[in-house]
Write a protein that binds this DNA or RNA. Structure first.
Length: 441
DNA sequence: TCTGGGGTCCTAGGACCC
DNA sequence: TCTGGGGTCCTAGGACCC
């Protein structure tokens, strides 16, 4: 039988911070979003202290201090590099792998059943990744992707019994796991569906799996139906190829409110230029661009304004100069003076491959932009930072992202590489194990 | 004072075409 | 006075993921 594995890095961003700073090992750690806005990753210790996902940092500041919680700004240079290392190792365990997110991958085990004990294999995967990267992972293995997700939850929740590796390979184990899994924790059941299902007294994954296919199809579309079948052991979801993106977005909240049109214009131009870079990276051109701006929705007493506009471009392009021009045209149409703007963004959509650009007799992208953009990319790549900008972009970088607690880019910048203090002794990172009284596994 | 930033897919309904 | 049937494309909105 074909089996799927789901490998998930435990508390990934928090674990990355610990790898190069072992002093953090037993301490609660949280990582904040861009602008140091809210909590997006927590170590187990921080979870136990009751720090919820998405907690606004400013509201929890005193709790951080009281409990000696170690707080970090997002360090995507570090997390991206650590992710690559983990994925590279995982790819040595099977020819078929799908990188599902920065900290998760599905592995497909086809033809393994006669040659491998998959539980032992899972243990080997976990051991190897942790030894070679310092990142602890959990491994779930099952006959479908959705069940592999379930198995992974079990592995993560019951480390004492599972040693972070769990396999669902019998119907008994499947049913037991589904009965244990709360409906809101099922992959594909979000907040809204969970609420509706609980109103019908469907409280766990097993009860959901017993609903009729007709009901599920009618109320949750074919997506819900696929999930339903997968939980019942029928594999509907195969590994997916890394497809080129269909949309690319660059959006940011500002550190303070912006009132001035010129300032917002500069940000929007920069977002458009960044989108153009991302487009060139995947060798696409876009045919439409969306620009949005909005005020701070959390300030309920202040006047609110939120607007977006989609422009159909006269020709497909991935030139930063062109996209910046169109972005400004869009912004002019939606900007209203007098509001306090908190966020803006640029989305590019409707892609054409760079290689198959249609020749438009009258209107087309300036042919000189292509070599120009290539040169810009090359220089920026070589210098490692954005040295080349449009004149309309902020030269002095007067704007800034709040990043007060940024750790070094240990693995991607030679100037920030770790220096070893002999007082530290590196050892394999193991998660704190705690007794659990109510565990069924 | 301070509340992230990306993505995907599906469906319904309207415009428009023959 | 009668007023089809089928198709495509587009958009908005709703759901979800990490």
């Amino acid at each position: 039988m074909i089996m799927f594995g789901l490998i998930d890095c435990n508390n990934f961003y928090a674990s990355c911070e610990r790898v190069f700073n072992p002093a953090l090992k037993k301490l609660p750690v949280v990582v904040l979003s861009n602008n140091d806005g809210c909590v997006i990753a927590r170590s187990n210790e921080a979870k136990q202290l009751g720090i919820p996902m998405g907690a606004p940092a400013f509201k929890f500041r005193h709790i951080f201090e009281q409990n000696n919680i170690q707080v970090f700004s997002s360090n995507y240079a570090l997390y991206g590099d650590m992710s690559n290392r983990v994925m590279t190792i995982l790819a040595t365990f099977t020819p078929e792998i799908e990188i599902y997110s920065i900290d998760e991958a599905f592995l497909k085990f086809k033809g393994f059943e006669n040659n491998f004990n998959l539980t032992e294999y899972g243990n080997l995967i976990r051991y190897t990744v942790t030894r070679n990267t310092g990142i602890p992972i959990s491994v779930g293995i099952a006959p479908t992707k959705a069940l592999a997700k379930v198995a992974n939850k079990v592995a993560k929740k019951f480390p004492d019994r599972t040693r972070h590796v769990y396999i669902i390979d019998t119907d008994d184990k499947r049913i037991k796991a589904l009965k244990w899994l709360k409906i809101e924790d099922v992959w594909g059941i979000g907040y809204r569906y969970a609420k509706r299902l609980m109103a019908m007294n469907i409280n766990n994954a097993y009860q959901f799996s017993k609903l009729s296919q007709e009901w599920v199809k009618k109320h949750m579309s074919v997506v819900g139906l696929r999930l339903h079948k997968e939980l019942n052991g029928e594999s509907c979801l195969d590994l997916e190829d890394i497809a080129p993106k269909k949309n690319i977005a660059t959006t940011r909240s500002f550190d303070v409110d912006y009132i001035d049109y010129e300032k917002i214009k500069e940000r929007v131009i920069t977002f458009a230029v960044t989108c153009a870079e991302k487009l060139r990276k995947q060798k696409s051109c876009c045919n439409r661009i969306l620009i949005f701006i909005h005020t701070n929705g959390f300030r309920e007493n202040e006047p609110q304004y939120s607007k977006n506009i989609v422009l159909q471009l006269p020709y497909a392009t991935n030139s930063g100069i062109e996209l910046a021009k169109f972005a400004v045209i869009g912004l002019e149409k939606i900007f209203i003076k007098g509001f306090r703007y908190k966020k803006a963004g640029v989305l590019v959509m409707d892609f054409t491959p760079e290689s198959s650009l249609q020749v438009n007799l009258f209107e087309n992208t300036n042919p000189r932009h292509k070599p120009l953009m290539d040169a810009v990319d090359k220089i920026n790549r070589q210098l490692g930072v954005k040295k080349l900008k449009l004149a309309s972009q902020d030269q002095g970088r007067t704007w800034k992202m709040r990043q007060e607690k940024l750790s070094p880019r240990y693995t991607t910048n030679i100037n920030e590489i770790i220096t070893i203090n002999c007082d530290y002794v590196f050892s394999l990172q193991t998660e704190q194990r705690r007794p659990n009284t109510s565990e069924p596994f």
